[in-house]
Amino acid sequence: MTTLALDRPFKRPTTRRKVRSTLVRVLLYICLAAVAVFLLLPFFWMVVSSLKRDIDVFSVPIQWIPDAFRWEHYQEIWGVEPWKGSSMLDWLRNTLILSVVVTFLQVLTGSFAAYGFSRIRFPGRDVLFLGYIATIAVPWQAYMVPQFLLMSQAGLVDTLWSMIVLQAFGAFGVFLMKQFYETIPEELSESARIDGLSEYGIWARIMVPLTGPAIASLALLTFVNTWNDYLGPRIYLRSPENFTIQLGLQLFRSNPDVATRWDLLFTGSVLSVLPIAIIFLAGQKYFVEGIATSGMKS
């Protein structure tokens, strides 16, 4: 915890302090590097496996460096159709549409509802909120059949719409945003109210801008969860042209007798992780340097 104060030197540091802080920094880097290796190991394994021959992917003990690097897998994967009429490009497109729409709806409706739960007092509010959280406690496998019946009656099975409506209105976003709204002092909204702003105005012009990091993390987490979901699309999306990336990749191994292509499966897995990594890197400053803090500095 000593390093907490490092970024905020209120007193001029003495030379001894400087030496100490450099030492701490070096140690910190060593620690972080070790942790990073540990964290990235499976990803590294995925990359290595994507460059191996299929039959060499699983071996005892693990082969960390392949005999030959088969980069051609990264070209091959775009042309393969493990299920006729459905290839990597289609899966990526579907997954992207789904993730973007779901994230947008989840963030919008979630943060809107969270305002109702955290800032407006009305009878039954807490019970309703608890009900929201409680539904998170029910494993999806237990109610997916009743849900499937409903969706089937509505004619939504085997459309991307089914996945959108299924994932966009979860309780997760409401809960998360409510927790962040509670960190914003009530006085802010009150002074805005005195200035004649409506509750909707307060949400749009005060709460949303002040919870930038929260919105960014909610968006990222929703995006990732939608991107990586397997069981939901598995049940609802039947036609290969509607497949998401996770469904598509499983096609490389779904016929255990003949068609297992672990090499391509991991090639696809590496490719499917990249967009998320890019979004994460690009979104960095929003997660950490929220507008709340930057506003305070000025």
């Binding site: 159709e81 493990p82 299920w83 006729k84 779904s254 016929n255 007798d257 003949v258 068609a259």
Partner: peptide
């Protein structure tokens, strides 16, 4: 009903 038509 069938499965994995391209390989089965």
């Amino acid at each position: 009903s069938g499965w994995s038509l391209s390989t089965t």
